[in-house]
């Protein structure tokens, strides 16, 4: 079950990320994971949030350009080699990872989530499930 990531266009200038998170704070949005990709002039913020639709609406109302992208969130136990096993599974399935970043699973848990952006979401999900990995759905993210 793929979850939705919010991607936002920001200019690469001081204060831009601050201003965007102001908007989210105001709307009581909790960010579960965040990663940035940037060039000299602009960047893309990628986020996993507790309320995807509220976030998309609030950003649009504030003149941000944002889009939703399906990504796979895989539960990874906090042990040596945890991530390595997931990557092996994806490699064997012939899945190319466009980008990935980590998310903590909550305040008292012993595992983390890794967020994967892949071209073939379904194929990745099937392979990971067959490999015995646990995938998070949108409710898991909201309930973290």
């Amino acid at each position: 079950m793929a979850i939705k990531q919010i991607s936002v266009f920001l200019e690469n200038k001081p204060g831009r990320l601050d201003a965007m998170t102001d908007v989210l704070t105001e709307a009581n949005i909790d960010i579960r994971a965040l990663s940035l990709a940037e060039t000299k002039d602009f960047g893309i913020v990628r986020m996993i949030v507790d309320d995807v639709y509220e976030t998309a609406t609030i950003l649009k109302d504030n003149d941000y350009i944002a889009s939703m992208t399906p990504v796979v969130a895989v539960r990874i136990p906090d042990i040596v080699g945890g991530l390595n096993k997931v990557l092996k599974c994806l490699t064997q399935a012939g899945i190319n990872i466009e980008y990935m970043y980590a998310s903590l699973a909550g305040k008292k848990s012993d595992h983390a989530y890794m967020i994967f952006r892949v071209e073939e979401v379904q194929k990745a999900e099937i392979a990971l499930r067959a490999g015995g990995f646990l995938l998070a759905n949108q409710d898991d993210i909201s309930d973290m």
Partner: peptide, 15 residues
């Protein structure tokens, strides 16, 4: 200006 039509989450694509 960036437009919703031109935006994607893929940096390489935008570049």
């Amino acid at each position: 200006e960036m437009t919703p039509e031109m935006f994607t989450d893929n940096l390489g694509e935008i570049e």
